[in-house]
Simulated scan of single mutants.
Amino acid sequence: MGSNTYIKTIEWDMMDKKKFFPLSMLSSFSVRCCLFPLTVIKTQLQVQHRSDLYKGMIDCAFKIYKSEGVPGLYRGFWISSVQIVSGVFYISTYEGVRHILNDFGAGHRMKSLIGGGCASLVGQTIIVPFDVISQHAMVLGMGKSHMNPLGINTGPNRSRLNISLDIAKEIVRRDGFKGFYRGYTASLMAYVPNSALWWVFYHMYQEELCRVCPPYVSHLLIQCVAGSLGGFTTTVITNPLDIIRARLQVQRLDSMKVAFKDLWAEERMNVFFKGLSARLVQSAAFSFSIILGYETIKRIAIDEQYKHLIRW
């Protein structure tokens, strides 16, 4: 099959949705199971004061494992796993917006930019309340009083479910329903540009790699590498915003301005690098894994009439 005759991007109207949605949810859950410890490590590195607890990603992982074992690396997992539901809405929005923009004759990169931004807006609106609870659970027991701002009882006989429910009840008691959307604006500012840029970079890197790689190189491998490169690029660009988001949600600061002011006074130029190594590893691994699952499932779910135009 010639390099110009196969379908490089499988579009929304080419797939059987009955196959796509369940396989997509299974893939998303599997990836989150494998990579969730990186999220815990990243969050704890971001909210620590300077480097008073952990010197870096490996030191953080070792200390969490030493004190709590594997369960410590999965703090807040079941609350966070609700993201597989938001993931369905995310990918449906992304593909749906691309399909609509295609009717208006939008270019490939413009479709990716707008689709990625809209998808993140929908996904974040669903997931932020669960993210707030999950991040409180992730940082409990870090050894600093301000890491338990809700005063949650974390006694040895308390299950993770009870602790998570107590976090939710305390948020409602103190702030009402709006407490679940603490840091929502910061989340949008961090993740909407991140998502929009990621899809643009993903397709851009994919096009460049297809151009320079020999025809025998797997197209799926090219897409996975392009996803990782896109993850690296957007992570470097948006890292300070992600730190501010995490601190707003966990340390209950009043505004993004206060969060940035405190962060700058504490870290100065290190604000651009704090927790970056963990985020880069998480982003690259997550992007590679998600694209591997996402693009494989699209190939499986594609309608019969297009299967002969698919290259693995």
Rank of each mutant, 00 (worst) to 15 (best):
H203A: 02
L73Y: 08
Y90E: 01
Q124S: 05
L220T: 12
D59M: 12
F286K: 08
D16C: 10
R211A: 11
V217S: 10
K55T: 15
L38Y: 07
A278F: 09
L26P: 04
Y90T: 00
R174C: 07
H146I: 12
Y6Q: 08
T235E: 11
I58H: 07
G96T: 03
G96R: 02
S287H: 12
K261R: 15
P37A: 04
A168N: 14
Y294I: 01
A190F: 01
F272E: 01
G231L: 07
Q206F: 05
W312N: 02
I58C: 06
L45R: 07
L140S: 07
F272W: 10
L73I: 08
L26M: 14
N270C: 10
M15R: 04
V31Q: 07
I58V: 14
W264P: 11
K169V: 08
K17A: 12
Y191I: 00
Q206L: 09
S28F: 14
A301Q: 08
T238S: 10
S283W: 05
T5A: 13
A168F: 14
G76P: 01
L209W: 04
E267P: 08
T235Y: 01
A196F: 01
I127A: 03
V212W: 12
R245D: 11
T9R: 04
F273Y: 15
E68A: 06
G141L: 06
T234E: 10
Q251R: 14
G69A: 10
F29G: 13
K298P: 06
K169W: 05
S28Q: 12
S187T: 04
V271F: 13
L229I: 05
Y181H: 04
T238Q: 12
V258N: 11
R245A: 12
K257M: 06
Y191W: 04
V217L: 15
W312K: 05
L150T: 02
L113R: 00
E95I: 03
E68N: 06
T154G: 02
R75C: 10
I100R: 00
L35S: 08
M256A: 05
F273G: 08
V212M: 09
M1N: 04
G230T: 01
H219V: 03
P240N: 00
E295F: 04
I91L: 09
C213M: 13
E68C: 02
T43P: 09
V217N: 11
M147R: 13
S3Y: 14
M14K: 09
K63Q: 14
R174T: 07
W264A: 09
Q249T: 07
M204Y: 11
T93G: 05
C33N: 08
A284T: 15
A190Y: 02
S145M: 12
V250E: 05
